[in-house]
């Protein structure tokens, strides 16, 4: 158990809903769900979720903390927004899914090797270097995510697309050497730091129930 996880278990004992409301982006909406099921039925990836959104909301209210936070379900969300568009109560379901995934990751409870999580981490790490996404490096790191052999295989398979992108100047091979950057890198870092402070403050604002 990570320290933060221990601390949160202590703080929100038996009130997972309150914990979600305090710590998860848009989490205060969870209690508004009336269990109609439209989100679950509308999700194009629905059949592949262990627990569709409607069920996650019920599990949160039922206090099933470990099952929810360790679930791979919310990582399946592709942000198509079908659920938000159709929810009769206008719950920001997509955002709640991302909020839950993010929170689970912070607590160290997200399922190991969850591919969406791994990719998200790579995206973030990539972005943090220069303030701009380095697509060449991001693409390659994605190919090699599951080891060298698979990486080479995937690279060969994608070769023609890669060459096409180079030819049409959609991708620059020079990106391999550092890559382009935002103009004011230290300003960018300061901005991220400030955002992290704001988030920490938002979380700290909620007192123990």
């Amino acid at each position: 158990m990570t320290d933060l996880n221990k601390q949160m278990v202590e703080q929100y004992r038996n009130s997972f809903l309150k914990e979600v409301e305090a710590n998860v982006e848009e989490g205060e909406w969870v209690k508004m769900c009336m269990q109609c099921g439209v989100c679950s039925g509308s999700c194009p990836l629905g059949p592949y979720w262990d627990h569709p959104p409607q069920e996650l909301f019920m599990m949160i209210r039922a206090g099933k903390r470990e099952e929810v936070l360790a679930s791979s379900s919310m990582w399946m969300c592709t942000s198509c927004y079908n659920c938000i568009a159709r929810c009769p109560r206008e719950l920001p379901i997509t955002h709640i899914m991302h909020g839950l995934a993010h929170y689970a990751k912070r607590l160290g409870l997200a399922p190991k090797n969850q591919p969406t999580m791994k990719f998200s981490q790579k995206f973030w790490d990539n972005l943090m270097v220069t303030g701009r996404v380095n697509e060449l490096k991001l693409g390659l790191s994605l190919y090699f995510m599951n080891g060298l052999v698979e990486g080479i295989k995937t690279s060969l398979k994608m070769k023609n697309i890669g060459l096409g992108m180079l030819l049409t100047k959609r991708m620059n091979p020079m990106e391999m050497l550092g890559g382009h950057s935002v103009k004011d890198k230290s300003g960018f870092k300061a901005m991220i730091k400030k955002a992290q402070e704001l988030e920490a403050a938002r979380i700290a604002k909620f007192k123990t129930p």
Binding site: V38, S40, G41, S42, P52, Q54, R86
Partner: peptide, 23 residues
Amino acid sequence: KPANITQDKDGNPIVNGVNTEGY
């Protein structure tokens, strides 16, 4: 609450969704 309705080749409406009693 059904998510949507589609139609099969015989013109039968197909009701699609997830049942709250058991999901």
